[in-house]
Amino acid sequence: MPPAITAEGLVKKYGDTVALDGMDLSVPEGTVFGLLGPNGAGKTTTVRILTTLLRPDAGRAAVAGFDVVADADRLRAHIGVSGQYAAVDDHLTGAENLEMVGRLYHLGAKRSRRRARELLERFDLTDAADRPVQGYSGGMRRRLDLAGALVADPPVLFLDEPTTGLDPRARTTLWDVVAELVAGGTTVLLTTQYLEEADRLAETIAVVDHGRVIALGTADQLKDRIGGDRIQVTVESAVDLETVRRTLAPLAIGDVQTDAVASQVTIPVVNGAAALTAALGRLAAEGVVVRDAGLRRPTLDEVFLTLTGHHTVEHTKESVR
């Protein structure tokens, strides 16, 4: 089966700023692909090109078998898009918004109306269906926007930072919806700043920096490359920090970090659960009083530090696009 999304050497410049610098992607049909990166890395620009909103300066891309430039008109019937900023109309009700989208997908009046009601129910918006969107909360708007992307049951779905601004419950709902869609054969490309989210949803993750893919693989492969899980130990008394460091150093596969203010030691490990059990045994043997201990995933910042040698923070000054 040909890939649902391909991109080869996409380049996009805004004046002197290079937003995309040779972006390559290949997303197999019926899978979830995660673009992971900080603000300004080129995630949104990539989505805008793949959804026909922007023309690339160089390179080519195809979605669902249609070239994003030459076949843009025909391509649009096969994609659904939910952007970072909710694209909904304030003065229209939730139902009217979705019906309008259905009409513009040429579903016809009756099917548009039925589809609108179905989606409102699915996203827990039935009670607000006939109220103007003006009165919706930020999370409700995001949900409605997402529903808008699903109106035509598109085979390829683009979600640009879909959970930004959602509360934990809505986030779980969204994750469930994505899982359901993919089980039904939909291809999903999503962007996120959270490794946890990419890990949870995406089979393949591309880490993006300066408009290029700098690492590609499954969540496990990436985590192995950047040193797997982290054990985080908090002690009662900061005087024990050095003991903890010394005791756990043999388990670490990278730099051990000590945070004196939080009385915390972070150790990169492989085989997280087994390593955590071993760590707690060693600390008990040394007589260290542990207040809290646990396993956590590397943060995006740690991923970046390992892969690029720089933190994500410097990116945030650049343009969001």
Binding site: T51, L53, R74, R76, V81, L104, D145, G148
Partner: peptide, 13 residues
Amino acid sequence: QKGIFDRFRTLPM
């Protein structure tokens, strides 16, 4: 200024 035209432009209208 809002995103609504982006939505329109990704639709087959």
